[in-house]
Design a protein around this nucleic acid. Sequence first.
DNA 1: GTCTATAAAGGGATAGAC
DNA 2: GTCTATCCCTTTATAGAC
Lengths: 189, 189
Amino acid sequence: MNASPRRKELTRLAAQLFVQEGFDRTTVRMLAQEMGIKSGSLFHHFKDKQEILAAVIEEGTQNALHIARQTLERSTPSPEDRLRAMARAHLETLFTDRNAHVVALFEWRRLDAESRAHLSHLRDAYEALWVDVIDEALEADLIHGDRFLVSRFVLGALNWTVRWYDPSGPRSPDDLADELVAMIMPQSR
Amino acid sequence: MNASPRRKELTRLAAQLFVQEGFDRTTVRMLAQEMGIKSGSLFHHFKDKQEILAAVIEEGTQNALHIARQTLERSTPSPEDRLRAMARAHLETLFTDRNAHVVALFEWRRLDAESRAHLSHLRDAYEALWVDVIDEALEADLIHGDRFLVSRFVLGALNWTVRWYDPSGPRSPDDLADELVAMIMPQSR
DNA sequence: GTCTATAAAGGGATAGAC
DNA sequence: GTCTATCCCTTTATAGAC
C-alpha cells in the first residue's frame, strides 16, 4: 500500500476523529478541516471515505501486530511473563497514541466487504499471536480452559477498557494489564 | 415513561435494526418499513430518532436489571453460584431475543447528553449488582483483586462475546458463562 | 393513527481552474 | 496538491388531508 509520510499523517488525523465521533458521524468536511485542506482536496489522497477507514484500520492493526511481535521477541521464555507482556502491549496500542487500534476494534463492521476480506488476515495474525501465548500458559498449567475461549475472554476484557479506563488517572495501563493477568492466574500473586 | 404495548413493539423492532445496522446507519425509513408504516407516521410515536434510541436503551437496561435481580433472588447464597448465575443472566439478555441490551452497550455514545444523564442511573444500578456479587466472591476468598477492576474485566469479557460468539453454534450461552467463571475461579473446576 | 408531499439541511463525490 | 463551485442524493422532520 501507498504509505507516503503525508498519507500517514492524514490517516493519523482521521483516526483521531473516528475515535471521537465514530466513523459514520465523521464527515469528509470535518476530516478535511482537521487536515487543514478543503473537502474536495481530500479525494486527491483517498478514493473515497471507505478507503480512509481501511487505511486507519490497516495502520492500527499493523501497529498492534508489530508491537506484539517485538514484545514477544524481547520477552523471557516464561509463559507468565509473556502473557503479561502481551497484555501490556495491547493496552499500550490502545492508550498510547491510541486511536488507530481503537478504530480497528470498534469500527470494523463499517468496512465494506472487500476491505474486510483483505484486512481480516492481519487481524487473524494478531489473534494467532495471542492464542500461542495462551497455549504456552495452558501447557505450563498456569491457566485452564479452551484456548480460543480464554483468548477471547482476555481480549474482550482488554478491549472493553476503552469504555471506562481513564489513562490520565492514577493507574497506569501496565497496572491494568498486571491486574488482569493476576485475575486469571492467581498463583502469580 | 409511556410504554403502551404498541410502543413497546415498535421499540423491539427498532432494537433489532439498530443491532443489525448500527444506530447511525439505520434510517427512519428503514425503521418505518420494518414497522409496516410510512416514515412520516413514525413521528406520531416518537418525537425524533434520538427518542427511539433512548427508548431502546431504557428497555434494554431495565430488562437486564430486572433479570439480574430476579436471578439473585432465586440464587443460593453461595458466592460461586451467584457469580455464575449473574454471568449466565448477562449472556441471556445479550443473546436470547434481546437486542435491546446489545444496543444499550454498543450505542451508548450515540445518546444525547440529556438521555445519557437520565439513563446512566439505570446503568449504574446494574453495575452495582455486579460489584456486590464480586464483593461476595472476594470476601469468600474465591477471587482476588480490586472489586471495580474485576467487575469491569468480567463485564468486558462478557460484552465482547457479542463480537465473536455465534449462539447457533454448538456451545450454549450458559457454557460460555461457566467457562468464564472457571477462568477466574480455577478452584471451581 | 396513517397517508402523501415536501421542506430544509447536510451528506459524498466530481470537474476544472490554478 | 489545493481551490471553488456545484451536482445529486439521502437524511430527518413537518404539514395537512383523510
